[in-house]
């Protein structure tokens, strides 16, 4: 689905992402792993055009020039959900559909469908973000990201701000949802256990570079260098 060719990001001379080439297959689950500042969030932001970059990103073969035009095919969820506090949960969810001129009946049907998928009821959807729990906020954020029926979901540490019980439950639900929808998923996390849980291909990054990629089990059994070994060991120990 994605084809990255020498994608490169630097802010004022500081390299946030070294020239990176990468392809992401349709339906693939890709986990971006690494310590803070390793460039994994920057790479994810490139995938939805939020970060300026040099190089080429192709979506289904075509180089992306106008990101706004392709964003309706992409869903984006960040750590605390990034919900707009002045809109109700439902207001957050329907914003993009309204922008793209969906009819009310179609919007209503889609909201019901998604509410069922993530397990929220009407009463919860009527609340404002400040009146929802952390887990509920992430469910609303998922609904918002899925509203237009995107081809890919881009998630930036979607579970990090949650307590362990909620995190476990939501992680399970997300894995089910990904499997059911069969969509491309790129998820940033710093947790090896999350990476293991969601499976698929993992990319380990450090200082803006990809250090090693492959199934998590492969990273664990054959770390490419001392950093990978140390990172995996530290992640497993704590």
């Amino acid at each position: 689905m994605y084809q990255l060719d020498a994608v490169h990001v630097s802010f004022g001379g500081v390299e946030a992402l070294a020239p990176t080439s990468l392809s992401i297959a349709k339906g693939e689950t890709l986990v971006l792993l690494g310590p803070s500042g390793s460039g994994k969030s920057t790479l994810l932001r490139c995938l939805i055009g939020l970060s300026p970059y040099d190089g080429t990103i192709r979506l289904d073969g075509a180089p992306v020039r106008d990101w706004r035009a392709v964003r309706r095919r992409l869903g984006y969820v960040i750590q605390e959900g990034g919900l707009f506090p002045h809109l109700s949960a439902r207001g957050n969810v329907v914003l993009a559909a309204r922008e793209f001129g969906w009819e009310t009946s179609r919007i209503e049907a889609r909201v019901m469908e998604l509410a069922q998928l993530v397990g929220l009821d009407d009463e919860q959807l009527a609340r404002f973000p400040a009146q929802l729990s952390g887990g509920q906020r992430q469910r609303v954020a998922m609904m918002r990201a899925l509203m237009l029926g995107p081809d890919a979901l881009l998630l930036d540490e979607p579970l990090s701000a949650l307590d362990p019980v909620t995190r476990l439950r939501l992680a399970g639900e997300l894995r089910d949802i990904f499997a059911r929808l069969g969509m491309t998923v790129v998820m940033v996390t710093h947790s090896l256990r999350e990476a293991r849980f969601f499976g698929g291909r993992a990319i380990l990054m450090r200082d803006g570079r990809i250090v090693q990629q492959g199934p998590v089990a492969e990273l664990e059994s054959a770390p490419a260098d001392e950093f990978v070994a140390e990172f995996l060991a530290a992640e497993s120990a704590l």
């Binding site: 939020l50 706004r68 984006y76 707009f84 793209f100 237009l148």
Partner: peptide, 13 residues
Amino acid sequence: PPLLDSAEALGLS
């Protein structure tokens, strides 16, 4: 900034 990002990521004009 996360709110601005979210708005942009939604594809809003």
